[in-house]
Amino acid sequence: MSRGILLLGLASVVGAVGLADGGSVLVTDEAFLAPGLTASPFTGGPASLQENDGPAYNGQFTYIRIRYGGELRDFSARDFGGRGWGRGGPMWAHDYPDAEINFSKIVNATTFIDAYMGPRGGRVLTLDDPELFNYPIATIIEAGYWTPSDEDIANLRAYLLKGGFLIADDIRDERRFEFDRFFSHMRLVLPEYQFQLVPDDHEIFNTFFSIPEPRSLALPYGRWNTPAPIYLGIFEDNDPVNGRLMVIMNGNQDIQEYWEFSDRGYYPIDLSNEAYKYGINYMIYAFTH
């Protein structure tokens, strides 16, 4: 059986499990927020929230989502429970937590990665959290809306230079500012580096699945003026041939959107399967490079 067919079957399994549970895990105030949590700026986050959010480091691969910006009011049952477009909520939390829950299931079923399979699929950490440095792979969603503090910049720089790998997803240039904002912030993080095109034949598209035409996977949604997907990266020593990819940016793409809804039938199952291939390839790449 080819990997694609296997994945197809597994994606169906994910869907079946999700439906059998009455849908994915719904996060409620009670479940997510610690009692007595008051409204406060969300830079760094309340310690009690972080403690309750995911397991302590346990040697397993744990999906890490970077939390940034936003007010606490953004966290509400409606925001997290809401589905689909225009559901609001903090930008970092888009597709959370279904994307990682589903992705972790696929990772465990498809590969030998010892992936954490908790109720939220992973952990949510801020850039100023020392815990981040226990997880060499991190993802940032809607990175065009990310406004880092000086401490965030310093920490992310250290993280990447020490061997961390950052995946930036759901960053679209249809409004002509998301790319620029992310680039400018990353320029603060790694001023000596620059974003470069990740070639279609790059190793990252062949580590587990073969993705011969990476830019062929369409954005799951979009406007008439959304540019075509593009994969940009920051390479160690600015060397796209031999340099390790430190950051990959899924430009004009929203891979996690596919993952989030892969058990609900919003998108064609073969497209969801394709999206999983990117994620697994990224993981294997980071584990080996």
Binding site: D114, P136, G163, T288, H289
Partner: peptide
């Protein structure tokens, strides 16, 4: 036997060492 970060970091640690070829 399983994808884990020992591989990537070990390779990185040996990347400057021209006398050791780590075949993974």
């Amino acid at each position: 036997g399983e994808p884990r970060f020992e591989v990537s970091f070990l390779r990185r640690a040996l990347s400057e060492d021209e006398n050791i070829q780590v075949v993974v």
